[in-house]
C-alpha cells in the first residue's frame, strides 16, 4: 500500500458506493477577484450532505458542470470563516472553469469531495512558517491562513510571500491589512509594476536573499506554478531547511480524485490521494525529473 504521508482528514462525502456521482450545490455568492478569476460560495442543495461535509485546508473538490465535465479545484477558505459554505476560487481557463464563469447565483454545479491531503497545520505548530505562493496558488492556502490566524499563538513568525504577474492580478488584496494585523509579515511582489505600484517587484524566492530563517524551526508551505515552487524549494534547501519541513502542493490532470483513474500519477504517487500536499522529502527523487 502507498505510505500515507500526512494524516489526512477522513473523506466525509461518502462516495464510495457511487462512483463519480456528484451532489448538487447551489451558488450562493460570486465575487470577482481579478481578471478571469472569481470566488464562488456554494451550498449543497441536500441539507444532509451540507451538514455532514467537512474538509481540511489544502484539500480539493471535483466540480462538475453538466455537459462540460469536472475540474479539480482547491477550497479557498475554511468552513468556519465561510459560515459553513464551500468556497472555491476559480481561474477561468479550462473547459469546465470557463463554463463556471458563465454561471450565476442560484445556478447549480455538481460537487464531489473532499479529496487529498491537507496542509500540516498541526504538525508545524510552534514553528516559524513561510507561506510561499504565486498567482492562483494563494487560494488553496487561504484556508490555512485563516486557520493559523485563529490559532495565532500556536505559531512563531509567519511570513506570507505572494507573487503575481501584475498588481491587478493579486488575489484577495482587501484582506492583506487584516492579515498584517494578525501579525503576518506580508511580502507581496509582482513580476512587473506600473507607476502606481510601490510594493516589491521581483519574484517570490528572492525573499530568501533578504531575510534570515532559522532552518530548524521553519516550515515552508508552497503552492503555485511548479517552476516557482522549484525555486522556493531550492532557496529553502540552500538555507538548510530540512526537506520534510517544506510542503508542496502539486497539480496534475485528475478524473476521479480517488487514485483509481490513473491520470495524476507521478512516480509512486497518485497526486489526488497521496497529495496534493506532499512534504518535499517524499518528492525528492521525482520532482525535478523532466517530463516524469
Amino acid at each position: 500500500m502507498t505510505t500515507t504521508l500526512i494524516d489526512t482528514a477522513a473523506h466525509s462525502a461518502g462516495h464510495n458506493d457511487k462512483l463519480l456521482l456528484p451532489h448538487w450545490a447551489e451558488i450562493v455568492k460570486i465575487i470577482p477577484e481579478a481578471e478571469g478569476v472569481s470566488t464562488f460560495h456554494f451550498r449543497f442543495t441536500d441539507p444532509t450532505v451540507q451538514n455532514r461535509y467537512r474538509f481540511e485546508p489544502g484539500q480539493f473538490n471535483m466540480l462538475y458542470v453538466p455537459g462540460y465535465g469536472e475540474a479539480a479545484i482547491s477550497m479557498s477558505s475554511d468552513l468556519e470563516t465561510a459560515g459553513g459554505l464551500l468556497v472555491h476560487t476559480i481561474r477561468h481557463i479550462g473547459n469546465v472553469t470557463r463554463a463556471t464563469s458563465r454561471l450565476k447565483v442560484g445556478d447549480v454545479v455538481g460537487i464531489r469531495g473532499p479529496f487529498g491531503t491537507s496542509w500540516p497545520l498541526e504538525a508545524i505548530e510552534g514553528m516559524d512558517v513561510v507561506i510561499a505562493c504565486g498567482g492562483i496558488g494563494l487560494p488553496p492556502l487561504r484556508g490555512a491562513i485563516y486557520r493559523i490566524i485563529r490559532n495565532r499563538a500556536r505559531y512563531g513568525k509567519i511570513t506570507l510571500l505572494y507573487g503575481a504577474r501584475m498588481p491587478k492580478d493579486l488575489m484577495f488584496p482587501a484582506e492583506y491589512e487584516a492579515w498584517q494585523k494578525a501579525d503576518i509579515d506580508m511580502q507581496v511582489t509582482v513580476d512587473r509594476g506600473d507607476d502606481t505600484w510601490t510594493g516589491r517587484v521581483g519574484v517570490v524566492p528572492m525573499w530568501f536573499y533578504h531575510f534570515r530563517v532559522d532552518p530548524h524551526k521553519t516550515a515552508v508551505l508552497t503552492c503555485g506554478p511548479e517552476i516557482m515552487m522549484r525555486f522556493v524549494i531550492y532557496e529553502a534547501l540552500a538555507r538548510r531547511i530540512p526537506s520534510d519541513q517544506i510542503y508542496v502542493s502539486l497539480e496534475r490532470n485528475m478524473k476521479c480524485g480517488q487514485g483509481a483513474c490513473g491520470h495524476c500519477q507521478q512516480g509512486p504517487y497518485f497526486i489526488c490521494k497521496d497529495g496534493p500536499v506532499f512534504p518535499f522529502k517524499a518528492l525528492e527523487n521525482i520532482f525535478n525529473v523532466e517530463e516524469y
Binding site: P66, G67, Y68, G69, K255, C256, C261, G262, H263
Partner: peptide, 10 residues
C-alpha cells in the same frame, strides 16, 4: 492496466 477517463456527452 486500469486507467480510465470520464467524459460528458451533451
Amino acid at each position: 492496466c486500469f486507467c480510465w477517463d470520464a467524459v460528458d456527452q451533451a
